[in-house]
């Protein structure tokens, strides 16, 4: 459902993302991991059509994002990591606006918006301006907006940021059920436990290139690490093993 063919991004001389080849099938929950600045968000923004790749092609289903963006985007629900919303719209107005962008209106659309607001416990706040929402409420509204037009593909960048445990659990269940019912999920996260527990396949991105990808078993084999957790694999593959030294130095008196 999502296919990347040699997708790359350069900013002047700096290459943020080296040519990437990737495929995520329907019914699959794909995790995209990497340290800060690895190129995860840049890749996600290229997949959603927000950012133009310098090279390569992105396909959503059979639709080329560059050649046929309108059709490609019809399938996507996007949840960015640090989004700005329209502060002067209410929650329900925002959902209606997003539905309109996807060409949907009428009773069914309103019903779905109401259901989602209730699901995310925003029903009482539906007629309140977004500017008054807390960070977690904004995140919930954003997730609701990505689902309001019933997408086939969910692309989500750091979904758990700012969510309370109940909402975080809801998102995890929601993404899992969505994939089990044939939807495609492309998930970027720092929360390794989430990726380990939730994802069917994982790719680890480092300095703009994929260092390893596959199931947890594949990754363990690639890292030649035996039966260890994703955190150790991640640190090993991204060259962050000296983290223990950093922690030790922080504990040294007078180091702060």
């Amino acid at each position: 459902m999502i296919r990347l063919e040699g997708v790359s991004k350069r900013y002047g001389r700096f290459t943020a993302v080296h040519p990437l080849d990737l495929e995520v099938s329907p019914g699959e929950l794909f995790g995209f991991l990497g340290p800060n600045g690895a190129g995860k968000t840049t890749t996600i923004r290229m997949v959603t059509g927000v950012l133009r790749p310098t090279g390569g092609r992105v396909f959503i289903g059979d639709h080329d994002m560059q050649k046929d963006p309108i059709r490609a985007k019809r399938h996507i629900g996007y949840i960015p990591d640090r989004p700005s919303l329209y502060e002067k719209l209410t929650g329900s107005e925002f959902l209606r606006f997003v539905s309109g962008l996807w060409g949907r209106d009428g009773v069914e659309s309103e019903k779905r918006a109401t259901e989602l607001l209730e699901l995310f416990e925003l029903g009482a706040w539906r007629d309140t301006l977004v500017e008054s929402y807390s960070h977690g409420m904004r995140q919930k509204l954003l997730i609701a907006s990505a689902l309001v037009h019933s997408p086939d593909v969910i692309i989500v960048d750091e979904p758990m940021v700012g969510l309370d445990p109940k909402a975080a659990r809801l998102i995890k269940d929601l993404l899992r059920v969505f994939a089990d019912q044939g939807g495609t999920v492309f998930l970027s996260t720092h929360t390794l436990e989430v990726a380990e527990a939730l994802c069917d396949r994982i790719a680890i991105l480092h300095q703009g290139a994929i260092r390893a990808s596959g199931t947890m078993t594949d990754l363990r084999a690639e890292a030649a690490a035996g039966a260890i957790g994703l955190e150790e694999i991640f640190l090993k593959l991204t060259g962050s093993e000296n983290v223990h030294d950093i922690i030790t130095s922080l504990r040294t008196p007078g180091a702060a």
Binding site: R45, T48, G49, V50, K73
Partner: peptide, 13 residues
């Protein structure tokens, strides 16, 4: 500008 992410990711001409 700040909400361009939404407009750009939607199937909006």
């Amino acid at each position: 500008g700040r909400t361009l992410w939404l407009l750009r990711s939607s199937p909006l001409d």
